[in-house]
Design a binder for these strands. Structure first.
Length: 592
RNA sequence: GGGGUCGUAGUUCAGUUGGUUAGAACGCUGGCCUGUCACGUCAGAGGUCGCGGGUUCGAGUCCCGUCGGCCCCGCCA
């Protein structure tokens, strides 16, 4: 680039204090307005927009050149900063008090007509925007999101550095592990028939770094999981990962609360109340039906089993007989607004999560209106109203099923109602810890126990001697999640630091000694060579960035995200490998 | 693996009960224009109606299949 056009300022900073200075600006043409005799160009860079003026009376040649300029051209301009004439100040621009009279101009690059302009108000389909991501990334929204994402990681590095953490990189080419998500596999040319796996998280390495005496480790690191995508899930995503030695939950909470509070304070100017509230897992499930409850509104779940036990409504009776639950939500003052259609919609929500149906009672001023009312004795109904605190105008909705279905269905009905009736105060921050997770969950399909968090999570001390099949259902883990506005933004645990415990854990998970040795030998070895007590947590950076920026999708805070089919529309990845590569890797396809 | 939804000009959309030459806005190209900032104004170009098959005298429209985007269930320790 010609030194003549080395920038003196960027496009967002010139104000009346710069008047009469000669400046050089570079950027993209945001808008060109050609008045024939006079040409205005709004020059854009990521800092802002400056209006430059090409006037043949100032410089005939520059004005002539400017006639060939088009939107999105990349140019450099030089000229004098002048105040705008009386009445011509543009209050919408930070630089609106001034304009630059150009006497020299260079076109660095022309452009094909772009499929869309990053600055036009019209919404463009995401597929087109993803294909031309470099254009979309020029938009105000994505610029803001990526800058804000960087602001978050900067705070993380500063806070953790201050707290004595060091950033240690861990391998991307590593070992496939059983359990958890599907791995992305990478074939090894030097070791035919062998594969690396991309890390689902640096979990084991960070534990081993604790054995290595690193004391406090963190990393902002890519993780890979070959599972189906969602609005808040990408196959490669970024964790803020950290681990500490010689700590318990309390110390980790304290550190994390400082970290999260600093992020909120510095990035969005919100100060959070500390300490953060703590919900036990079971309480979260009972009250909200979810282990990631949105605590910004009430509408809590009520157990009505006692009130309806013995009723003639077969659905309820049978569910209770077979050990299930009957639970309800009281939707306050909704008999008018909750139409038949709206109730049907809520029933559909319930069915999505496995419920067979949804019963309801509208509490009208002088009567109860419901298809199921006839199955209940008056005493039961009185009890029901009392338990749910129902008053005239309220609607009760019921789900009767297994505990899991009841929780899932009511949790999602609750969210749907919360949105429908605007019960969610968007100005609030609903942040909470969820603790005391079950250690195991039962995998019905394979009829075995699986680790709810991961197999390296420590049981509570009082459960250490109960690590067997008989107790498995009741054991609880020293695990914790951090939940923000109904989203899980982080999770972690105190880890097992003794080999005997880890071996028992594997055994209960159905991982035999041989398999454990083969898959996790290195961890078991490390645990025998002086592993300190340790624990940590990992946060979903993308999710945090999404929530803080108000983005609709995790894709909007990732520079080059993938589609729901895990492809990149810009690079066309993944794509077929050529025959030579496959031969070197000794790979052949079985297309049967 | 399953459910939903969308696909028409570069872009965003409209397109009636299946009917003859598929429209609008923005963008683009050219002309005019010295105070615009979503400049204005006049003119113009621009279509594999995602793709394939079927029904029909006739398909953007109906049917089947398929590809792709998005949302959801399952899955995601």
């Amino acid at each position: 680039m010609s030194l003549d056009f080395r920038r003196t300022h960027h496009c967002g900073e010139l104000t009346d204090v710069h008047i009469d200075q000669t400046v050089t600006l570079c950027g993209w043409i945001h808008t060109r307005r050609d008045h024939g005799g006079l040409i205005f160009v709004d020059l854009w860079d990521k800092h802002g927009i400056t209006q430059v003026v090409l006037n043949p009376q100032i410089d005939k040649l520059a004005h002539q050149q400017a006639q060939s300029l088009r939107n999105n051209y990349v140019i450099g301009v030089r000229g004098a900063v002048r105040p705008r004439p009386e009445g011509m100040v543009n209050t919408k621009l930070r630089t609106g008090q001034i304009e630059v009279y150009i006497d020299d101009l260079i076109i660095f690059n022309k452009t094909k007509t772009p499929p869309f302009s990053p600055w036009e108000a019209q919404e463009v389909s995401e597929a087109i925007r993803l294909k031309h991501r470099y254009l979309d990334l020029r938009s105000d929204e994505l610029q803001k999101n990526l800058h804000q994402r960087y602001a978050i990681t900067r705070v993380v590095r500063n806070v953790l550095d201050r707290q004595g953490f060091i950033d240690v990189e861990t391998p991307m080419l590593t070992k496939s592990t059983p359990e958890g998500a599907r791995d992305y596999l990478v074939p090894s040319r030097l070791n035919p028939m062998c594969f690396y796996a991309l890390p689902q998280s640096p979990q084991l390495f960070k534990q081993i770094l604790m054995v290595a005496g690193m004391d406090r480790y963190f990393q902002i690191v890519k993780c890979f999981r070959d599972e189906d995508l969602r609005q808040d899930r990408q196959p490669e995503f970024t964790q803020i990962d950290l681990e500490m030695s010689f700590v318990d939950e309390g110390q980790i909470f304290e550190l994390v609360e400082e970290l999260i509070s600093e992020i909120f304070r510095q990035v969005v100017g919100i100060s959070l109340e500390r300490p953060f509230p703590v919900l036990k897992y079971q309480e979260a499930i009972d009250r909200f039906g979810s282990d990631k409850p949105d605590t910004r509104f009430g509408l809590e779940i009520v157990d009505v089993a006692d009130a309806v036990r013995g009723c003639d409504f077969k659905v309820f009776a049978q569910v209770l007989e077979s050990g299930g639950q009957v639970r309800a939500l009281n939707i306050k003052q909704s008999t008018e607004t909750l139409s038949r259609k709206a109730l049907d919609d809520l029933t559909e929500v319930a069915k999505t999560y496995g419920a067979k149906g949804m019963a309801w009672i509208k509490v009208q001023p002088n009567e109860l209106q419901s298809p199921i009312i006839k199955f209940f004795k008056q005493e039961m109904l009185d009890n029901l109203l009392k338990k749910t605190g129902a008053e005239p105008g309220d609607t009760l909705v019921f789900i009767a099923d297994t505990p899991k279905v009841v929780a899932d269905a009511l949790a999602n009905i609750r969210l749907a109602v919360g949105r429908k009736f605007n019960l969610i105060d968007e100005s609030k921050i609903g942040i909470t810890w969820v603790t005391e997770f079950p250690l195991f969950e039962h995998d019905a399909a394979e009829n075995r126990w699986a680790a709810m968090h991961h197999p390296f999570t420590a049981p509570r001390d009082q459960d250490l001697d109960k690590l067997d099949e008989a107790h498995a259902a009741h054991l609880r883990a020293r695990a914790y999640d951090l939940v923000l506005n109904g989203n899980e933004i982080g999770g972690g645990s105190i880890r097992i630091h003794q080999m005997e415990v880890q071996e028992k854990m594997f055994q209960l998970l159905g991982i035999g000694p041989e398999e454990a040795r083969q898959k996790f030998g290195f961890l078991l070895d490390a645990l025998q060579f002086g592993a300190p007590p340790h624990g940590g947590i990992a946060f979903g950076l993308d999710r945090i960035a999404m929530l803080l920026s108000g983005a609709a999708s995790i894709r909007d805070v990732i520079a080059f995200p993938k589609t729901q089919k895990a492809t990149c529309l810009m690079t066309q990845a993944p794509s077929e490998a050529d025959a030579r590569q496959l031969k070197e890797l000794r790979l052949k396809f079985d297309l049967s």
